[in-house]
């Protein structure tokens, strides 16, 4: 129970933290933690199959795509 509450806290905190960064690369890395947190939460909520997909997409693929975007554009928000 304590684990779930901690994960929930991480999810909300990392979402907000990612949005307030001025360095976009840092925002992308933090959003990866949000994806990982969601995957862990799905696992705790008995959705093991969804957790696997979310772990791959949310913590690797989507941040990867976003990182490519940031590399191809500009790193710091104007």
């Amino acid at each position: 129970m304590i684990i779930e509450i901690a994960i929930l806290f991480v999810i909300v905190a990392s979402s907000i933290l990612a949005l307030v960064q001025r360095d976009l690369m840092r925002a992308v890395i933090i959003i990866g933690f949000q994806g990982l947190g969601l995957a862990l939460l799905y696992q705790r909520l008995l959705a093991a199959d969804v957790a696997i997909t979310q772990a791959i997409l949310g913590s690797a693929l989507i941040p990867g795509l976003m990182a490519i975007t940031v590399l191809k554009t500009r790193r710091y928000q104007e």
């Binding site: 979402s15 949005l19 949000q34 799905y42 959705a47 989507i62 976003m66």
Partner: peptide, 24 residues
């Protein structure tokens, strides 16, 4: 990029509603 992160967060929120609905 932040707007796009916002779109992703909306989707994640809806997903979490569905997952929690199925939780027993």
């Amino acid at each position: 990029v932040k707007k796009i992160i916002g779109v992703m967060l909306v989707g994640d929120g809806v997903n979490l509603v569905l997952i929690t609905e199925g939780f027993k």
